[in-house]
Simulated assay, not measured.
Amino acid sequence: MSDDSEKYWYNLKTGEVEKGYASPSPDRAGPFDTSEEAARAPEIIRERSRAWAEEDARGDD
């Protein structure tokens, strides 16, 4: 198992990338393996949400 305290997180309040548990849990998205990936967190979250919504819509048929 990996140590998430050594990974990167996206701070949802400030928009900053952080390493480790610098912010309270409700304010963090992640973990991500790289700071570059964490910086893309809003885009990644939108993509995943869109995919889940499409899955749900297909399941309603």
Rank of each mutant, 00 (worst) to 15 (best):
P24T: 12
A41W: 00
K7Y: 04
G30Y: 04
E54S: 12
Y10S: 03
P31Q: 09
E55W: 05
Y21H: 12
D60S: 14
T34N: 05
P24S: 12
S23M: 00
W9Y: 15
V17E: 02
S49Q: 15
E54Q: 15
R58E: 12
I44W: 00
G15K: 08
R28S: 03
L12T: 13
I44S: 00
R48Q: 14
W52H: 13
P24M: 09
D61G: 12
A57I: 07
A39D: 02
S49I: 02
K13P: 00
D33I: 02
T14E: 13
T34M: 14
E18A: 14
Y8H: 10
V17C: 01
M1T: 10
S49F: 06
R28M: 14
T34S: 15
A29L: 09
D27L: 13
W9E: 01
A39H: 00
W9F: 15
K13N: 10
A53I: 14
E43K: 11
T34H: 01
R28C: 11
E43N: 08
D61Q: 06
L12H: 03
E36G: 11
G15I: 02
T14D: 10
Y10T: 00
D33F: 11
E6R: 11
G59H: 04
E37T: 02
Y21T: 07
G59N: 13
A53K: 15
E18L: 13
A29P: 08
G30C: 02
D4S: 11
R46Q: 13
A22W: 01
E54I: 06
W52G: 08
E43G: 01
E6P: 03
D33E: 13
G59S: 11
R40G: 02
A39T: 06
E18K: 10
A29K: 01
I44K: 00
L12V: 07
R58P: 01
G59K: 08
G59R: 13
W9P: 06
T34Y: 12
R28P: 01
E37H: 03
W52Q: 15
V17F: 03
A57R: 14
R58V: 06
I44R: 01
S5L: 03
R28H: 01
E47W: 01
I44E: 04
Y21K: 12
S49K: 09
S35D: 11
E54K: 15
P26R: 05
A22C: 10
E43F: 01
K19S: 10
G20M: 02
P31A: 13
S5C: 08
A53Q: 15
T14V: 08
I45M: 13
A38L: 06
D61V: 09
D33Q: 02
E18G: 00
E43Y: 00
E37W: 00
A51G: 04
K13D: 03
W52N: 12
A51V: 09
L12Q: 11
L12E: 12
P42W: 08
D3A: 03
N11P: 05
E36S: 04
S23K: 04
K19V: 04
A39C: 07
I45L: 15
K13G: 00
A41M: 06
G30M: 06
S25I: 05
E47N: 10
D33M: 10
W9S: 07
